[in-house]
Amino acid sequence: MGSSSGEEEGTNKWVPPSQRPELADVVPVGQDDGPCPVVSISYRDDFREVMDYFRALYSAGERSPRALHFTAEAIHFNPGNYTVWHFRRLVLEALDTDLLQEMNFVDQIAESNPKNYQVWHHKRWLAEKLGPDAANSEHEFTRKMLAIDAKNYHAWSHRQWVLQALGGWESELQYCNQLLEEDVFNNSAWNQRYLVITSSPLLGGLVAMRDSEVDYTVEAIMANPRNESPWRYLKGLYKGDNYLPVADRRISDVCLKVLKDDSTCIFALSLLVDLLRMGLQPSDELKGTIESMENCDPETSHVDLATAVCSILQKCDPLRISYWSWYRTTLS
């Protein structure tokens, strides 16, 4: 925390604002925290002094280079203080500052504060002003941030906004492939993939993409059957349609293949019972597999296949036994 008195001087020793000649005419304004005993706060002294001077410049509405420098300093102390950012934008607008330089400034802050709402909003404000030319560099930046934390919600939101507002879809599906290669359990990347196949102006939409996406997803499931995300994605590919997933043998086949190796895979059992409920006529092989799994339980041997699958789920997912018990009641 704490930085030099102005980002351009490059001095290493921090000088308290009260000892800086360029601020001699400013009368600091203290924070009035009132008498409320809940969440009372003691401030570190240097931070308090910086904020006292910030408040003075802010309440005077001073739109000057020194005010801009001072907001940078206050931001270094506390990048979450939204009022400092607000004031900075007012000063930036008044001074007609170079916005690319400002983007570099905020990128540096974002790198050390990747989950800060204010920082990402400031970036968006700048990107909006810079327009489509900013798309590629913004995508590069979120890529860099997602390389550090591939599930950072702020970075994803920003990336999606840039895609939809400024463009840059060209390599997005490839990027999803890359992230899923690195970590196939990354739900954010699966979510992004869904956005790309449904919204990219370059790919033709969900219906055009469905066939190849089913292959891709089945492969991902076979590699890691206990991964929640691709199972949900697979269902999402048939959004709202009860006929198509039942008719597409690849869907019931992936359930069967998984269950042969891992008879307690909740997601395979769950999708299977969904398919059965939607009217899947089970193959003899599928019937045989399920029956061999539950043949130790004579109670279920005479019920229909969907109910049998539900009773298996009740046993192998005890944390959610109430959900599966409810599901079972919907079958009759």
């Binding site: 809940v38 706060i41 003691s42 931070f47 939204y82």
Partner: peptide
């Protein structure tokens, strides 16, 4: 008695959201 320790990081970052803290 949620008096934060002086110098604590939380005390710095909580200032602007004190109303939510309340």
């Amino acid at each position: 008695t949620a008096e934060k320790k002086k110098d604590s990081f939380e005390s710095l970052v909580m200032e602007h959201l004190r109303l939510s803290g309340a």
